[in-house]
Nucleic acid binder design. Structure first.
Length: 270
DNA sequence: AGAAAGCCTCGGCCGC
DNA sequence: TGCGGCCGAGGCTTTC
């Protein structure tokens, strides 16, 4: 599903990284005003707490951990989670052009909050489905290592299972406390590339299967980063009911794994 | 009108 | 058998 020639996406790690690059443009600016609706401020004590906390803060830098965008300031660190349909806007510029599951265009009624700077610019969160959240001094200890820079050593810790067979590898990939940034589409793409059944218990992966998954993890991040979005994976052409695998023509299977709709090839991921 | 997403909460049960 | 922690299910929210 695309919107004509417009790229359509889900805010997974690659999209949030492009939001971070957009946010880099406000480094050095000072916030004069901030606002948020009740949903965006849901993790804070109130929308007023956001307005009060951000006033007069100067942005000193940007960072990102997984899907969490971080704005560093001369005071607390500001965090933004984008949920399913959140897009970061800087005045007229969007961090990305469209969303896979989101609307085809931007509407002012879907602006849920943001900040205004001393130079007049505005950094805004556009979020039709209201799952984006602001945070103040977010707790990073609950997030695993960043998926865009995952080393082999970190990967080996990521697939380690303490007890029993462990969760399905698909569920482990989505576990943000194990590795931060992999969303549903990226997880399916990695497993497709690694020729792994998403239901495989993490603790039962062979050495060869772990090697394949690590390679697929890295290649998915780098090639989809170059292509420009989480929705541009090799398996996406086959990602519909009744779809056939673009690699070998096998029938695609659909099931809920790790709480998310999962597509995989019955032939090469069997 | 059903399904989709990220994230959070809750409850059940696994494993020691 | 008891307990803590893990894991999966379900809810939130809105749109197409």
């Amino acid at each position: 599903m695309t919107f004509g020639d417009t790229l359509a996406r889900v805010p997974e790690i690659l999209e949030v990284e492009s939001y971070r690059q957009l946010a880099d443009r406000v480094v050095g600016a000072t916030i004069v005003r901030g606002w948020a609706d009740g949903y965006l401020a849901k993790k804070l004590t109130s929308p007023a707490a956001w307005a009060r906390s951000v006033k007069n803060l100067t942005i000193t830098g940007t960072d990102r951990r997984g899907k969490l965008l971080l704005l560093e300031t001369n005071g607390p660190t500001l965090g933004v989670r984008f949920g399913m349909t959140g897009v970061l806007l800087l005045d007229g510029d969007a961090g990305i052009e469209g969303l896979f599951y989101g609307p085809h265009d931007f509407q002012s009624k879907w602006l849920r909050g943001g900040v205004e700077f001393d130079d007049g610019r505005k950094l805004l969160v556009h979020d039709p489905r209201r799952m984006a959240r602001f945070e103040i001094d977010p707790d990073l200890s609950e997030l695993g290592p960043d998926a865009l820079r995952l080393t082999r050593k970190q990967f080996d810790r990521f697939v380690r299972v303490e007890r029993g067979d462990g969760p399905a590898i698909k569920a482990r990939l989505l576990d943000q406390s194990r590795v931060a940034g992999v969303g549903n589409l990226l997880a399916d793409e990695m497993l497709f590339r690694a020729s792994l059944d998403p239901r495989t218990p993490t603790g039962l992966l062979s050495g060869d299967e772990k090697d394949r998954l690590f390679k697929a993890f890295r290649s998915t991040m780098s090639s989809l980063g170059k292509r420009g979005g989480s929705h541009l994976g090799d398996h996406m052409d086959s990602r519909f009911p009744g779809g056939l695998c673009s690699r070998d023509g096998g029938a695609m299977v659909i099931a809920t794994i790790g709480g998310r709709t999962t597509y995989w090839c019955s032939t090469h991921q069997g």
